[in-house]
Design a binder for these strands. Structure first.
Length: 117
DNA sequence: TTTGTGACTTTTT
DNA sequence: TAAAAAGCCACAA
């Protein structure tokens, strides 16, 4: 690709199946830079094409999103993911202390299957 | 061309 | 167990 990494990131994020989510590190790895998780965020931050790039499917390693920096708000993103079929963890397996809405990575974490360049 | 920063992740204190 | 710091790579100014 002309740009290389950035293009790869966009391609990977676009390849995320509906109802699934991926972490920055995973996208970075598929893009060719397993340690460039931050760059993935930076690239998505600019989001040159939010229409084709479902950045809301990309979450932290913890399953949470970027508060305040999402396309329109973490709350909106949660609703959007639910629309796609992504399950959320209300409380937490930790001790019932609800910290914040997290995606159920154990169920909706994308394996990278179906990604073709 | 060089410096600084960032939607992250992992390890150590 | 929790919190803090460093490391990492690419893009923008």
């Amino acid at each position: 690709m002309t740009n290389g990494f950035a293009q790869e990131v966009y391609a990977v994020v676009r390849a995320i199946p509906r109802g699934y989510v991926a972490t920055y590190g995973m996208v970075a790895e598929l893009a060719g830079r397993p340690r460039a998780s931050r760059i993935v965020g930076g690239v998505l931050h600019r989001n040159p094409d939010p229409s084709t790039i479902p950045c809301h499917r990309v979450v932290f390693r913890d399953g949470s999103l970027a508060p305040g920096f999402a396309f329109g708000g973490a709350a909106v993103q949660r609703r959007r993911l639910e629309e796609e079929g992504v399950q959320f963890v209300a409380g937490t397996a930790k001790n019932g202390g609800a910290e914040g809405p997290r995606v159920d990575l154990q169920q909706c974490l994308w394996d990278g299957t179906g990604y073709a360049e």
